[in-house]
Write a protein that binds this DNA or RNA. Sequence first.
DNA 1: TAAAATTGAAAGTCAAAGAAAGTCAAAGGC
DNA 2: GCCTTTGACTTTCTTTGACTTTCAATTTTA
Lengths: 156, 156
Amino acid sequence: MAKLSDMIENFIKQMLEENDNNYIIIQRNELANYFRCAPSQINYVLETRFTYERGYYIESKRGGGGYVRIFKAGVDEDHYLSQMLSRKMGDSMGQQVAYAYIDGLLEQNILDEKTHNILKNIVSDKTLNIQLPLRDEVRANIVKSIFLTLIKFCHE
Amino acid sequence: MAKLSDMIENFIKQMLEENDNNYIIIQRNELANYFRCAPSQINYVLETRFTYERGYYIESKRGGGGYVRIFKAGVDEDHYLSQMLSRKMGDSMGQQVAYAYIDGLLEQNILDEKTHNILKNIVSDKTLNIQLPLRDEVRANIVKSIFLTLIKFCHE
DNA sequence: TAAAATTGAAAGTCAAAGAAAGTCAAAGGC
DNA sequence: GCCTTTGACTTTCTTTGACTTTCAATTTTA
């Protein structure tokens, strides 16, 4: 019965949707209290679901008056794609990171669900079943190729 | 007494029939418990009876809140896809052959132009820049994975 | 009274425990 | 001899809790 993380994820996403800004501010302990879970559970959700690759950015402050601020990347498709490409995408990429990038494309409404699914399966370890240094290199190439193709489509 | 595997197979098929969606979600351990068998028995049934050649697609997640999701293709309306699926694609595939398969998906209106483009770039020699016996094997896997995933989405 | 220490209120870190599912090889039945 | 069945072991994902760090406000102290 471990849907807690999913519930928290959806809760945060809904807050982001309903908000006029591209960010929300939460109190970690308050949210943990609301869901009756350990505060670190919130960190877990943020670390696994609201990553840079998925188009999110987290900022926080400790101590009195502390907070956690969650940003969601903007809606300019072209900009989003080239940002992702130019920053951080290395020559080697693990399965989870690749998944995150592709999830981000769905969340930004750049891909529909069908394509999203196809691409995730393509970059899975199961499909890319070759030796490990190579596998992650091919995967990085594939993900980059996806972003490149999408950028081309922006300019048509 | 019918074999256990057959009983489990029928049970799952019935669940699929009675469901409005083209998929069902089960807990592996729960089902194993229901049939009083080892959990891995469920895997055996899935591997031998719910293969993609027969028009099924399996998706699963481990850990807390884990599940197994079984999709059934709507075979009737999708002549093309089910034909391709039951036909064996080789374990190795050159660029041109892969292109042909992906072009076919566009012609059958199974893919839109954007996705079609992304996929063709993925299976290109340029993206898959590894040594040659391996390259064609990975490419074959990718193309198969595409068709496999499409099963999920071919219900009216 | 200004710097320094104290305190309490956040958030962060990390590792262990728990909860599924996957793998694989050996044993059992026809 | 090939399907089935089982069970031990592995891997992945989630949840929890104890401990740490940071910050601001307040209180002490020179």
